[in-house]
């Protein structure tokens, strides 16, 4: 248990030192403020439009960015140490393989959580101060939901990254697979789902449940469900708008998406020969 926290602390410190935390925070904050300010650009205006539009745009940004960041952060967590030779050494230390992997996950998870909280938090404060007529309670609830679900989303893709990292034996392959995974879950899956939506004329009650098969869609569902006025812009999430299932399902699905790949990674890691 203690060994796990030693590893987690080291990963987190590495994140501070490599300026991962700073970089993620700045990217998220700047993009979020940009989106808030240029939210009305599509309709020919500048300046803050509505809270709902802004939060939906922010969640769309997060859907693309957070998985990418998480994958880049952690794809070499195991295979990188293997290439450097330190993995071999760590495995001869009094620390179990599970503790090593969970420790790394907590460290990376904290990096993502802190950076997301800071990045979106700063943006939220700027919005609260700069924009007029924003109900503070609504903003904080919406933002809290966005931050919490973004962190969950990040952890899902961290777990994917670990699964990739313990499976391959070269860093370059891990990077390739990570990009492939991002492409599949963030882009391809939704295209397929849209095609199905158009193709299936009748029945199709099962379609909303398909969305739970993709963590990014669960993330969208969490963030879009709060707003009535966003249905026009929500695209794919419209499938689930009739309240096909309980609102606890998407967060639960995301938890499953964290736990299952992570446990698979631990299992594979135990069979791993250094």
């Amino acid at each position: 248990m203690k060994a796990m926290f030693i590893v987690a602390a080291k990963e987190f410190q590495d994140g501070l030192r490599n300026r991962w935390v700073l970089a993620i925070t700045v990217i998220l904050a700047v993009l979020a403020m940009g989106i808030a300010y240029f939210g009305a650009a599509a309709s020919g205006g500048l300046g803050f439009t509505s809270l709902a539009t802004t939060l939906v745009s922010l969640s769309t940004l997060a859907v693309f960015l957070i998985p990418l960041i998480a994958l880049m952060l952690a794809y070499d967590a195991v295979v990188g140490e293997q290439e450097a030779g330190t993995l071999l050494l760590l495995l001869t230390y009094p620390i179990s393989r599970s503790a090593l992997l969970f420790g790394k996950f907590f460290g990376h998870g904290m990096i993502l959580a802190v950076a997301t909280l800071l990045g979106f938090g700063i943006a939220g404060m700027v919005i609260a101060l700069g924009a007029e007529g924003v109900p503070l309670s609504e903003l904080s609830v919406g933002l809290a939901r966005l931050i919490a679900s973004s962190v969950l989303l990040g952890w899902v893709f961290l777990a994917f990254a670990y699964l990739i990292s313990v499976t391959v034996s070269e860093k370059a392959r891990a990077a390739g697979l990570a990009l492939g995974g991002w492409f599949l879950f963030v882009l391809v899956f939704d295209l397929v789902l849209l095609a199905l939506l158009v193709g299936v004329k009748q029945g199709g009650d099962w379609l909303p449940y398909l969305m739970l098969l993709n963590p990014t869609d669960s993330f969208r569902l969490i963030n879009l469900s709060g707003f009535d006025s966003t249905q026009l812009e929500s695209g794919i999430a419209a499938i689930a708008q009739q309240g096909a299932f309980h609102s606890a399902w998407p967060p639960l699905a995301m938890l499953v998406w964290i736990v299952v790949p992570l446990l698979l990674a631990v299992r594979r890691f135990h069979r791993h020969t250094a």
Partner: peptide, 8 residues
């Protein structure tokens, strides 16, 4: 171990 590079 042989050829260990540690954390650069």
């Amino acid at each position: 171990p042989e050829n260990v590079t540690f954390y650069e």
